[in-house]
Amino acid sequence: MSQVRVQPTADAIRAGARAIRRRNVEIVNAAGLGHIGGDLSAADILATLYLGVLNVDPDQPDDPERDRYIQSKGHASGVLYTTLAAAGFIPDSLLDTYMADGSPLNGHPDRNKVPGVETNTGPLGHGLPVAVGTAIAAKLDASPRRTYVLCGDGELQEGSNWEAIMAAGHRGLDNLVAIIDRNGLQQGARTEATNALDPLDAKFAAFGWAVRTVDGHDIDELLATFRAAPFERGRPSCVIAHTRKGRGVSFIEDRVEWHHKVPSAEQTAQAIEELSE
C-alpha cells in the first residue's frame, strides 16, 4: 500500500475511542434506533484496530493487499460507522444520516454502500465463516494480508461459527485473528444463562487455535496482543476480550435492557458528559 502510517500512541487511541463513543451515543439518540450497549463494549477494540493495527488506507479502500476487518456482530453498526469516520473512510457529517431513509448507513453494514465495509453482516454466525474464506484466499495468493473478525459472545451459539472454527484450525490459518467481544450479555439475558460458553478458551484451543484472554478496554494490552499475532505459527489466533456492555456510561453498563434501548436527550447529555471525563 502506498500510504506510510505513523503509529499513534496508546493515549491517542484512547482519546479516539472516547470520541467514537461520544459520537456513537449522539447518532443513536438522533436516529431513535441502534444497539448502543454492544456498540460501546466494542469501541476500544475497533479504535485499536483501525487507529493502530490494521494495514488499511481510506484513500484506497479496495486495495487488494489491505487487511480485512469483518464485523460479524453486524447489529453493532453504529460503532463501525463512527470508527470508519474517525479513520477517514467516510465523512463525519454522514453519521448524521444514520438509519435515515435512503442513508447508506443502515442498521446492518452494507459493503456496496459504505467504503471500508468488507462484507454485509447482520444475521449472526455469518462473519466468521466469511473471514475464514478471506484468510484461505490470502494463503492461496501467498499474501501477507491478515483477516480480523469481531464476534459477539452470544453469537457463538450459532453452529455455523463452530464449523468455521474447526475449518480454520484444520487449515492452520495463522493469518486469521478472531476477537470475541465477551461482555457476557445478549439480547434479553446473560449468555451463561442462555447457553453456557465457558470455558471458551479451552473450546477454541480444542479446535486448534492459539488463544489469549485480555481486558477488552485496556488499549495497551489490546495493542500488544494484536501486534503479537499470530500467537503461534500454523494456528489461527483467538482473542477473548473481556468487556462491559455499555462501557463508559454508568446507567448503561452491564444492563441487559440496553441491548436495543435508545437514550433520551437528557440521558444522551449525561452519557456524553461521562464519556468526556
Rank of each mutant, 00 (worst) to 15 (best):
S2H: 10
Q3N: 14
V4P: 09
V4S: 14
P8A: 10
P8I: 06
T9K: 10
A10F: 01
A10L: 11
N24L: 15
N24H: 08
H35W: 00
L40W: 01
L46P: 13
S72V: 01
G74C: 01
H75L: 06
S77L: 11
G78Q: 01
V79D: 09
Y81V: 05
T82R: 04
F89G: 06
L94N: 05
L95P: 06
D96Y: 04
A100N: 12
A100I: 02
D101W: 10
P104G: 08
G107M: 02
H108Q: 11
P109Y: 03
N112Q: 06
V114P: 13
G116I: 02
V117K: 03
G122H: 12
P123H: 05
L124E: 05
G133I: 14
T134P: 00
I136H: 10
I136M: 13
A137P: 11
S143W: 08
P144I: 11
P144S: 11
T147Y: 00
L156Y: 07
L156T: 10
W162M: 06
E163N: 12
R171G: 10
L173I: 09
D181F: 07
G184T: 06
L185H: 05
A189W: 09
T191W: 04
A193K: 12
L197W: 00
P199L: 03
F204C: 01
G208E: 02
G208L: 06
W209P: 07
W209N: 08
A210M: 11
D218Q: 04
A229I: 13
A229Y: 09
P230F: 01
F231P: 08
G234N: 00
R235W: 05
S237Y: 04
V239D: 08
R247N: 14
V249D: 00
I252C: 06
E253C: 12
E257L: 04
V262L: 00
A271W: 04
E277S: 13
